[in-house]
Amino acid sequence: MNELIKQIIEEQETIEQLIHIDNQIMNSSIDYQTFLKQSIEIINNHNNVTTSTNKPLLWITDGEPLLTLAILNNETNQQTTIFVNHHYLALNKWLITRYIELTNHTNYHIDFFLNYNHYIKNKNNYEIIPLGENTFKEEVLNDFKDEENGF
């Protein structure tokens, strides 16, 4: 993962352009220096999440790129999908592309699009791991419950 940080430093110009695209579309205000600093913190604070099954992992985030980085930092051989809810496409794409190029971990896959309802339908095929704020996790788990109160 330190290699990934090196790439973030070496490709500053590219990342600044990608940040600019994401900021415009997501109405956000990420800046490169903050992104680099927070990326280094995440890589250094390595907290492994242990999983309870051998099922493919489905990480569900609200698309924040630093969360994607945290998931990539939690290296595993299990099939892993990171669902980013069509957010921060530019930065997330860069992260997964560079990660797979550096590590050859082709078990990782990032889902950008509107497949969320498909995952709800096939929830039994995955181990669902929401990542983010507490209210977010609560709402995601609500969606995957069998009862109707997911709506």
């Binding site: 609200d62 699009f113 969320y116 709800i120 096939n122 977010f136 709402e139 997911g150």
Partner: peptide
């Protein structure tokens, strides 16, 4: 409607109430 969504139909998007909800 809930059944429609859980059948995997993809023309409904969800946005969760995170700190960046308003921006999104």
């Amino acid at each position: 409607i809930i059944k429609y969504i859980k059948e995997g139909n993809r023309d409904v998007a969800r946005k969760y109430h995170t700190s960046s909800w308003k921006n999104k």
